[in-house]
Design a protein around this nucleic acid. Structure first.
Lengths: 343, 343
DNA sequence: CTGTTAGCGCATTCAA
DNA sequence: TTGAATGCGCTAACAG
């Protein structure tokens, strides 16, 4: 049936409809809804009854246009659909549920130009806030963020002065701790394995390198990173290349748990014993790390909390309660499991 | 610094600004942007130059209010943050990139009441379309969808008449094929393992049951499903319970690959040989299924394509080109790998 | 092909 | 505490 796809728009119940029914002016209904304390209790109740019975639902576009605030929180990520971002999303979604804000996600595809484009689009919408997992510290991006017309929360890595607010962990420190742990467990030829570089993986590289150099173990031949989307399969692929180029490699610190899992599977396939012959440390502590065989040593990043509190910071910055902190370090946690359980 | 969080709104460049600069009326600029063919080439070019140089960005709220169309496609899922939904998201994001529509996701938490609430919210926004992975076939939800003021695409399962349009696969058939495959490989005590039920898992159960009954193998003691979020850990947990209740179980058809992976890990832990002692079939064909050790037999669901084409259907239904089909069956594919490679 | 008029539904500002 | 007037920026409908 051809009439199927385009429907007539519904008859919309407007503020004015409710106001007329309740015998007040539309602005009073508006107030009853948005600033209940500014309307006398009795009137408020009457109004709310009509709002209910008439099924009034506010028009976001009209509200946004009149108030210059869309209620939208823009969330930018270089890889929206990476598994590690899911935990962030969960936190974001949970915190936003009880507010009247809405989330709009944007994928920046590891491209600063894309990031700038998406930011511009958001800014044109009078957003209530921006949450950004940056690709780079590109000066144009930072400049744009500095002139943002709303609160901005930089998430994931905390390093230096935030543009506005930031929450996350110190990735460099985390990598230092993971690398030190591998060394302490007797691994020497420790490889670094990753997918596409972003600013956080670069900081982890810095940490890895610093510790390796200090121990006299750094060797660029052990650093493997492909400009490819991260995946479990990539982990196996990288291990294959590693063992070809440096057959004496005895451990891998991976940019994330997916790659670590791929390395684990590839070791199983090749009969490489974990951790006797080879050690693995992942990053993120995804859910499966605790139940894989052998279980995976990894760095726990409080991803859910990062998302949850990032939204919280925006809500608080927009409200009239206590101002949020400018920077929150949630800390990380090295979870030692079987893939490094030597000695 | 206290001034940090709330910024002045930017000076906005409006249509009128551009129009004045170009010496035309604002509606002409509007047309040059939205229906270029309705403006003479010369004028169009002049206008576009001003648009560029003045950095004009349209105000979505104003546009939505005036045109009664927000350009938003609402996407509803019972579990937005399940890994299996990521593939859908990837398809959605990729298809929407080249359009002027935007996506807004909503999590329905496996709750029809939530679903209804979210639908109402979307409908109040004059959406350009709705993409919904339904929780149930709740009559209230169906009723709401029937009165939707925009194109609606039901995704994942195709079964019966769509409300408007639908795209996906036949989950019951897929389960029948998977179960038949396990039987054909000599497995007899085949368990069904799942997390929270939704309409699709229920259809898969129907298919499993039908085939098992036909083979005289159905036993309710082999059906394990917990009302818990799906996870890799849940798979291990379910296997543990299965082996306690039915120690002679010799295979598992899992509701998704995460659960299958958990079963795989738990088998490894217990020294159960795959597939000699136990067979596993997953569902979805997530990326790791092909690289796990042993690799995982599973049902490939074209998730990326579902997302991509669902958006495409909305774009086409909104445009003036060819009307999209009412229902698209993308088909599935049983991917036979090592976890069932017996005989 | 271009312009005029009008209004989308709400919230801000001011006044009572 | 309530209301009147006004405008947010854009586009539909019509006119020229």
């Amino acid at each position: 049936m051809g009439t199927r796809r385009r429907r007539q728009r519904q008859e919309r119940v407007t503020l004015l409809d409710v106001a007329t029914a309740a015998g007040v002016s539309s602005i009073t209904v508006s107030r009853a809804l948005r600033n209940p304390e500014k309307v006398s209790p009795a009137l408020r109740e009457t109004i709310m009854k009509f709002v209910e019975s008439m099924g009034y639902v506010p028009d976001f576009a009209a509200r946004a246009l009149a108030s210059q605030n869309s209620g939208i929180i823009g969330v930018l990520s270089p890889a929206l659909t990476n598994y590690s971002f899911i935990g962030i999303m969960r936190g974001i979604e949970d915190r936003v549920r009880s507010t009247d804000m809405r989330i709009q996600y944007a994928n920046t595809h590891f491209d600063p130009a894309d990031e700038i484009k998406q930011l511009r689009l958001f800014f044109a919408q009078n957003p209530s806030g921006i949450i950004i997992a940056g690709v780079e510290e590109h000066p144009d991006v930072l400049d744009l963020l500095h002139r943002a017309p709303c609160p901005v929360v930089q998430i994931m890595d905390i390093n230096g002065e935030p543009v506005d607010m930031s929450i996350g962990i110190n990735h460099r420190l985390a990598a230092e701790m993971a690398t030190a742990h591998l060394i302490e467990r007797g691994f020497r030829r420790i490889a670094l394995m990753g997918g596409r570089w972003d600013i956080r993986s670069r900081r982890r590289f810095d940490g890895y390198r610093a510790v390796m150099e200090k121990a006299g173990l750094y060797d660029p031949e052990l650093v493997f990173s492909l400009d490819a989307h991260t995946s479990v399969g990539l982990g196996g692929h990288l291990l294959e290349r590693l063992l070809r180029q440096a057959p004496d490699a005895d451990a891998a610190f991976c940019h994330n748990d997916d790659i670590a899992l791929g390395v684990l599977f590839e070791c199983q396939r090749r009969g490489i014993r974990l951790p006797a012959d080879f050690g693995i440390c992942g990053f993120n502590d995804l859910e499966y790390a605790n139940v894989s065989t052998p279980s995976l040593t990894t760095v726990r990043v409080p991803r859910y909390e990062i998302g949850y509190r990032a939204v919280d910071m925006i809500v608080r910055a927009s409200g009239n309660g206590t101002q949020p902190e400018a920077q929150i370090d949630l800390g990380f946690h090295l979870v030692e499991r079987e893939t490094t359980a030597r000695y």
